[in-house]
Design a protein around this nucleic acid. Structure first.
Lengths: 244, 244
DNA sequence: CGCGGTCTTGATTACTCTCAATAACTGTGG
DNA sequence: CCACAGTTATTGAGAGTAATCAAGACCGCG
């Protein structure tokens, strides 16, 4: 393949497993003629920069090609509440499809590369292409599923250990499903952000991290950490279920 | 209006605010010719009965016209985890659009009436009707938003009081937005189910309930309760934010 | 090298889970 | 209508867990 912009679209490992690859790869889309490219452009966001801010008009969806980001809201009392973490392969912004206004801040916690997808072009094409209509619906349905799945993982968990273990094993499984080798990049969320998300004090997260490292469940190295034993983490989360 | 089956579709108060009313009311759908009715049929489910079970093939979406239901999963160790509550106006089953297999049990916690909507007919119509395509996408996008909103409400809340207050005020607001008068039906979830959902012991929920009643935030009467002061509940939830 | 941030670790306090016993309610059948 | 069993809710006492407060270590960065 020649190094044209056409091939640049698939340069990330996650592209091979991206739900949106049908939008980038006309060839893979069967007999349906797919009008050129929906991909608006690639965007680089440096660590600490924002992919989008709450309240901004929403003209595009974003697919994360590499890096990771943190979604958050401002609480009435001026504090910040982390509402989620997003990694390679995640589609973000879909919840703003109806209101066309972003509902949270999304900040890069490490350098991020996103594919920006113009919503109006997506809709134009969907109007003429039944297959694309279905693709879109399934994408959203999958987003619903994923957002709920991660949640269910630690919903109702009462102990701090169960919540953290459940969340981390869920993230690891999700990334693995996307064909990202576990050893690839590692995770990089801060104790404070994780604590905000899971409803735990940052000190508690820190204590659990050292414990998980001692038990060989996680590996730490220079601000990053890797899930080493997702199976055992998952098991740990299950042992400490709510009583029901 | 004559009492034909055509008018029976709108007999519930929630119908006037239902996201799906465009599907039931051809007249309200503008110039677009809408093929008869997508509504498959109304279904009554008695208290304790299931709207659908996990693993069943999913051919339909369901809109709740009246009553309320509880969604739950079986945990690996045989326990039950409540994953949500659904009330009049909720659309359920959308997360199964892609896999066509239900992902949770949904049980009526009081007599429920649901509108069953055949997915394949919905898709047929969408293929021919751009306006319907958009409607569908927005519906799903809204579902994403709603499922996340309720969640964000108590996500990261550390104290039991904050979680419960946040969840209840969120439910109250949502029902009010649908034009359901607050005094209408009241809520009927058990302490145990709420506890499972929120990660609290049923005794803790019970204690908080009596406290909220003493403070005039809730009113109890024969297994049901009403949110009396959503504003103060919301405030209560906000005061006890995570530190951030 | 010193500064600001994040992270670790310890001691104390406060909260909520658990266990247990009682009470209230629901539905059933006499 | 009442008695009964089964479930659900209340209430109390004790134990365990995680939040808070506080101090020091570590790190990246100018």
């Amino acid at each position: 393949m020649s190094p044209t912009s056409q091939t640049r679209d698939h340069e990330f490992p996650v592209c091979n497993h991206c739900d949106l690859r049908v939008l980038c790869r006309p060839a893979g889309h069967g007999a349906e003629p797919l009008p050129s490219r929906i991909l608006k452009h690639r965007q680089q966001v440096r660590r600490g920069g924002y992919v989008f801010r709450m309240g901004q008009p929403c003209h595009s969806l974003y697919a994360i090609c590499s890096g990771s980001a943190r979604a958050s809201l401002l609480t009435p009392d001026g504090g910040m509440q982390v509402t989620g973490f997003h990694f390679s392969g995640d589609l973000i912004g879909a919840e703003a499809l109806s209101t066309r206004e972003h509902r949270c801040d999304v900040m890069a916690i490490e350098p991020v590369e996103v594919c920006e997808i113009a919503i109006h072009r997506l809709e134009e094409i969907a109007e003429r292409t039944p297959a694309m209509q279905r693709t879109l619906l399934y994408l959203l349905s999958n987003e619903l599923t994923h957002s709920q799945e991660l949640l269910f993982a630690f919903l109702g968990k009462k102990s701090a250990m169960a919540r953290l273990a459940a969340y981390l094993s869920g993230v690891a499984r999700r990334l693995e499903q996307r064909g990202l080798p576990p050893g690839q990049t590692g995770l990089q969320m801060s104790r404070g952000d994780l604590g905000s998300y899971l409803g735990l004090a940052k000190e508690t997260v820190s204590r659990l991290f050292t414990r998980f490292e001692d038990d060989g469940l996680l590996r730490f190295e220079a601000r990053r950490f890797w899930v080493r034993d997702p199976a055992r983490l998952h098991e740990l989360a299950g042992q400490l279920e709510s009583d029901g």
